[in-house]
């Protein structure tokens, strides 16, 4: 497919994004497109620019150059209404949840429904409860973030994003701030979304998840996309890809951690 077709057919497309922060080139001409049913995964060492890239896609971080297209329409980044339109259609899940600490789970979800969608308080709360139900937290609606576990917080954050009916979801290492025993409940929700065909771009190091669900893997390093292909190609045991090399190092780290429980923490915080 040519570049132009790519943009036209994609739900969301970021083309030739470059970002400089404090004199350093953080992203160097990177592009990505997501279409219906896509689950594109960003992999790469810490500091590669995955978070920056994801936040450029919904313009939480302004770009030096490059363009964003939503359903083929180019977003005018200088126009606030245009930016709000982009962000309403692109949900974002952060590594550390970013829940609103002063609002209950249900209020966290209903706030933007009231402010952005102009729903009435009852309608917003009804919708919020439906989303909480969908992530299995119907019985936690009245609790504040500080009263929830990490896994529950991340599920509330996912429900909050889903309530806006996004066309695409961006997920920035959604499980890497979680204790190992809580990773499963969040991945289960994401699995379910993938099964329902929600288009997603996700930075993650959960390799089992990537192998079974990713439609494409993009390996990033020093602000560039180095490799980009289907997971079974990049991760084939015969492959000489940087991706496989990186993932086997991750794997080693995990095995070491399993054998000596006292270093589990360090291993997890590095991945």
């Amino acid at each position: 497919m040519t570049n132009e077709n790519n943009i036209k057919n994609a739900l969301l497309s970021a083309q030739n994004i470059s970002v400089t922060l404090g004199n350093r080139l953080i992203l160097n001409d990177v592009s990505i497109s997501v279409g219906a049913g896509d689950l594109k995964v960003l992999i790469g060492p810490s500091g590669a620019g995955k978070s920056t890239f994801l936040q450029c896609i919904n313009q939480l971080i302004p770009t030096d150059s490059g363009s964003i297209y939503l359903e083929g329409e180019r977003i005018n980044m200088a126009n606030n209404a245009s930016l709000c339109h982009l962000r309403q259609n692109v949900g974002m899940i952060f590594q550390d949840f970013n829940l609103f600490d002063h609002l209950t789970a249900v209020e966290n979800i209903s706030l933007a429904l009231r402010k952005v969608r102009n729903l009435s308080k009852e309608d917003a709360n009804d919708r919020a409860r439906k989303e909480l139900n969908r992530v299995g937290l119907a019985n936690r609606a009245g609790l504040y973030p500080a009263q929830l576990s990490g896994g529950q917080k991340q599920r509330v954050a996912i429900a909050r994003a889903l309530a806006m009916d996004p066309k695409v979801l961006l997920l920035d290492e959604p499980t890497s701030a979680l204790d190992p025993e809580l990773v499963g409940e969040v991945l289960a929700v994401i699995n379910d979304l993938a099964a329902h065909g929600m288009p997603m771009i996700m930075a993650t190091h959960q390799m089992d998840f990537v192998r079974s669900l990713a439609t494409e893997v993009l390996f990033m390093e020093s602000g560039s996309i180095i490799e980009q292909d289907k997971p079974h190609v990049l991760l084939a045991s015969t492959s000489k890809s940087r991706t496989l090399d990186f993932c086997s190092k991750l794997n080693n780290l995990r095995q070491v951690a399993e054998h000596s429980p006292e270093i589990t923490c360090t291993a997890n915080s590095n991945t």
Binding site: Q55, M92, F94, A112
Partner: peptide
Amino acid sequence: GQLKAGRALGM
């Protein structure tokens, strides 16, 4: 991050 989350929701 909470301001970012607000922005990300289109507020």
